[in-house]
Nucleic acid binder design. Structure first.
Lengths: 146, 146
DNA sequence: CAGGAATTGTTCGTGTACTAACAGAAGTTG
DNA sequence: CAACTTCTGTTAGTACACGAACAATTCCTG
């Protein structure tokens, strides 16, 4: 009974808490990404990748598709635009919207980076056996919600 | 054979990549934390908790124990000191070191927040069944490394 | 003991991330 | 149609997070 599994009783060790380990796992992934794709941050790559998948999107819509709020996606897109990877123009139908699309250069960079991006996902999961990795992804997906 | 499981072939969907889902899971946890413990960030709580666990530590040592680099832990400790939760003094034996310890107020706050911290961990894992959660933590730990 | 190497903490610059407040445009409803 | 509401993007402020460069101190080794 006294096995510390209750949420309101027993010892609390920081090192055993989901949030803390989640943060460390994320750190490890970010480090792998920075090593293999130094010229683009994971966030920037995510925005570019999703925009290439969709072909086009409004700024906030792209933010929602990549789990970034309006303030965050703005900075990310600003930097991608400055590097000529993303093109932006005012939407004709809705004067509020910023219509985004990847430039040819952005599209090419995305495709050129794909092998490395796949490799990063593989390396991140490398500590797990094949079956463990599959199971882990299923559980992680549940944890992420939505 | 063509099941897209190879790291260098097949389709690439952002939404299926570990890094992306890891980031979303982390976001969900951060949101739960901010809701239940609005007066302290997860990082600040981690530093305070670990310092209370250890009783004392040098600044960089605490950073290592909480997976924060020297530049990051400095800002975190500065803010905790400003709020009177952590006391700092120059180490007598090593003039480089900053000797840190929780103040009485910091210790009390930590203990007062423990039930909520436990609850947050529980809520974060809530989408998983008991057995799934245990397994998940084991796999996540492997992924975090070290 | 002297001189190079490693450690500790600091600062700077860049890039997420989120809240809050805002302006303008579009949609909805009485 | 006019008021209300929602949605879009922007800005300002705070807080991680990390690389790089730096000074002071300590350690180590010849």
């Amino acid at each position: 009974m006294n096995d510390n599994s209750d949420a309101t009783t027993g010892s609390y060790r920081l090192d055993d808490q989901v949030g803390f380990i989640l943060r460390r796992a994320n750190q490890r992934h970010l480090a792998l990404f920075a090593r293999d794709i130094p010229d683009l941050t994971p966030t920037q790559f995510a925005a570019l990748a999703k925009l290439c998948e969709l072909g086009q999107a409004s700024q906030n819509a792209l933010g929602r598709a990549t789990a970034m709020d309006a303030a965050t996606i703005k900075g990310v897109i600003d930097r991608l635009r400055k590097r000529g990877l993303v093109a932006a123009r005012r939407d004709a139908d809705d004067a509020r919207r910023v219509h985004l699309s990847p430039t040819k250069q952005g599209q090419q960079l995305y495709e050129a980076l794909l092998p490395r991006a796949r490799e990063i996902s593989k390396e991140t999961l490398a500590p797990l056996a094949q079956q463990e990795a599959t199971l882990f992804l299923q559980l992680l997906e549940k944890l992420a919600g939505d």
